[in-house]
Amino acid sequence: MRRFILGRLAWMLVILLGVSFVAFMLMRALPGDFAIAAAGSQSVAPEVLEAIRRDLGLDRPLLAQYLSWLGNALRGDLGTSFVTRQPVLGELLDRLIVTFQLTAIAAVIAMVMGTVTGLASARLRGVTDWCVRLYNGVMLAVPNYVIATLIVLLAGLYFPQISIFGYTPFLENPLANLGSLLLPAISLALAVSVTISENTRAAVLEVSNQDFVMVARAKGLAPRTILRDYLVRNALTPVITAAGLKIAALLGGSILVETIFAIPGMGQYLFDSINSRDYPVIQAIVLVAAAIVVLVNTLVDIAYARADARVKM
């Protein structure tokens, strides 16, 4: 198991190195001038622009710039924002905590909803199965930003006493913090939960027809025991696949949802940075987001090995 984990961690480092290189080069390939963006004005004297380029290290070859940026990033220095003139890492960490809270709440909601509805659809069949499949089909066709907009409209119309926009820090008021993130988390979780539900239903139905389940039923084992020890455990692998990929995708969906609900997270930070052409911030966010996605996928691989010993082989 240790060798399996070390191998996945090594691949994670290789992927992150490639992502950092691509992100850095893409920023340099975008139209425009870093020096003009840093100066904040188009009408700047050429000598001032040259001084800015020299100060930012933009007068050096691209590979030298990348190696310098990578070395600083490994030491925890992700550069300085063009807009705020503050270190990117400090601002990014504050936003990352908010996005992590939002994503964690959305992931829990999605897992609970997806697993419960998927099991109910597979075990109860009949009307329950039809209702769950119909709901899943509708929710798969609706983007999360549309769901977020509808939630804002409906909550503002029928529940005006509920605070819809803004964010309350956890240390300031834990209950208000949960309340400020609940509606955005539901917006993110609904589309993810239906994918988990469909995969759970399909996996449980497939495992239900296996010989070892039929033998367990023939032995007279309790339905709860068969569900827990035979069905759920052996159906975990495809469910872990769907859950891992979709939970990692929550990060991408949080950009629009955070903007709609005015949540000061990493998604809104990226949106504002793109609008203001704040390239150091964009590079840092891409790198951190890639690290989170790769880490989630690595944890999914490890969960495979824990759920099914054959994966380690």
Rank of each mutant, 00 (worst) to 15 (best):
I263L: 12
R2P: 00
F261A: 04
R3G: 07
S20K: 04
T168K: 04
M113G: 05
V112R: 07
L70Y: 08
A45R: 14
L67N: 03
V14W: 05
L181P: 01
A309C: 02
S43P: 00
S180E: 01
I164K: 02
D278K: 01
L67R: 07
L63S: 10
T195L: 14
D55N: 15
R125D: 09
V207T: 14
A141W: 01
T241M: 10
F159C: 00
R310Q: 10
M113K: 01
T99I: 06
P238Y: 02
R224D: 14
V286C: 09
L175T: 12
A289V: 15
I240E: 11
A203M: 09
G40S: 11
Y304D: 04
G126E: 11
V232A: 08
G79L: 00
S254K: 09
L250Y: 13
A309Y: 13
A51I: 01
I52A: 02
T237H: 03
Y167K: 00
A110T: 01
A39P: 09
L62F: 07
T117V: 03
L78S: 09
Y167P: 03
Y269V: 05
N234Q: 12
K246W: 11
P174Q: 04
A29D: 02
L205S: 09
A106L: 09
R310A: 12
L188S: 07
Q65K: 05
L119K: 00
F24E: 08
R60P: 04
S41T: 12
L13Q: 11
A249F: 12
S20C: 13
L67A: 08
G126N: 14
V83C: 00
S208V: 02
V44C: 04
A242E: 07
A284S: 11
V98W: 04
Y158F: 14
L188V: 04
I36F: 03
R53L: 02
A191H: 01
I247F: 12
L89N: 11
M113E: 01
I36P: 00
S68Y: 04
S68D: 15
A29M: 15
G252R: 08
A37P: 05
L92G: 03
A289P: 06
D94R: 11
T128E: 06
I15G: 01
M113T: 13
Y158D: 06
E206M: 12
L26P: 04
V127L: 15
L227Y: 14
